[in-house]
Amino acid sequence: MATLLEARALTAGYGGPPVLHGVALAVEEGGVTALLGANGAGKTTILRALCGMIAASGEVRFAGERIDGLPTEAIARRGIAHVPDGRGTFAELTVEENLRLGAITRRDRAAVAADLEGALTLFPRLRERWRQQAGTLSGGEQQMLAIARALLLRPRLLLLDEPSFGLAPLAVREVFGALARLRAEAGVAMLLVEQNAALALDLADRACLLETGRVVLQGEAAALRRDAAVRRAYLGR
């Protein structure tokens, strides 16, 4: 399979000392790469650096082209949709408006309508909440809205920052079930940050283990599942 996203020597931070020290990682076309690591290891920072939300150095290639240094909105327009931590929905706007915003840069109206139908089939609950302000949705529904909005960009790559955060067990299953369907049916590639390592490794085909801003282990998800250190720290068995 071809490489869709490739980062080399990625170094980034928030003005102080760098949080990432020369990270290298890749996501295959249609593949899912999971980022594992302790709190503060730099997982969220990687996602932010990849889509230009913070200053970073290093080389990032998406579909063969350099995207490092581009502004966030330009990166989004190339087909990278980021579902950030805290979900980033527009709390004051309705569900409908949030979804319309997901496709705001697209001109192919017929395809947008089809994608909207697809997103609502994936998350039927959003249809019931159509005219409700996003801020009044439950946590699970907000996460669904955030993912659905990201899908309306018709992305080739989804960046997901802790999609299970704050969700009840049932809601977590619902969201991860939808992600698995997306992967299987639409072939959307994903870079996934998730503390629930068992869930993440179920969905992923590759995984990177981060420690204090460096990749210390990476490989097939199945191999990481068997790794003793990963099992102890992330899977608890």
Partner: peptide
């Protein structure tokens, strides 16, 4: 309110 949010297994322990 959700003190374990964003923590991995070892951190939760």
């Amino acid at each position: 309110d959700e003190p374990a949010g964003g923590l991995n297994h070892e951190e939760v322990y």
